[in-house]
């Protein structure tokens, strides 16, 4: 009788935080619209880039394998320089890059790349989506001003489930 309750759901074999976060990376792709010229100029694959230390490992590749967004295959790409991220649609900034966050955001200035990180104060510092732990769940906050600057359109559905939305 209690099968459907949230507590039971929590009892199931638990996915690690990064597995959840890897799935979220993919799902963000589904709720965000990239400007069409950007999509056209880009290569065929929808690329999820990891900058800095990769916390996902093979899990990300497993999750993304075979998935598509907007008819394009999704692939993961590990990069080491922020310059490389211009070709990505989503850029996950590892916690090792905390010192370079400002520089990365500047480099990507107005580039249609959705920046995501789980480092604290990422959205305050100009990042677009920042994972926020809430209890044992993974949630996120959105810096709407940053996304608008990058001409990315976020679905209201996404905003609905965000813990907070920064608008300036």
């Amino acid at each position: 009788m209690l099968l459907g309750s949230p507590s039971v759901c929590a009892q199931r074999p638990k996915a690690t935080d990064y597995q959840v976060k890897a799935a979220y990376l993919y799902n963000f792709g589904r709720f965000v619209e990239w400007p069409s010229e950007a999509a056209a100029t880009k290569a065929n694959a929808f690329t999820v880039c990891i900058l800095g230390q990769d916390p996902f490992g093979a899990d990300l590749d497993t999750i993304l394998a075979g998935e598509t967004i907007g008819g394009r295959h999704v692939v993961a790409k590990r990069i080491s320089s922020p310059q490389e991220s211009v070709s990505c649609q989503i850029l996950f900034v590892g916690s090792t890059e905390g010192n370079r966050v400002g520089k990365i955001i500047d480099i990507l200035d107005e580039q249609a790349v959705l920046t995501v990180s789980d480092m604290p104060e990422f959205s305050q510092r100009g990042g677009m989506i920042q994972f926020v732990p809430e209890g044992n769940r993974v949630r996120f906050e959105v810096n709407l001003a940053a996304t608008q600057r990058a001409h990315l359109t976020l679905s209201s559905e996404l905003l609905k489930v965000a813990t907070s939305v920064r608008r300036n």
Binding site: R139, E157, L158, V161
Partner: peptide
């Protein structure tokens, strides 16, 4: 979105 992001409260 609630389903995708596992937000039952939403």
């Amino acid at each position: 979105s609630a389903l995708v992001f596992n937000d039952s409260r939403a």
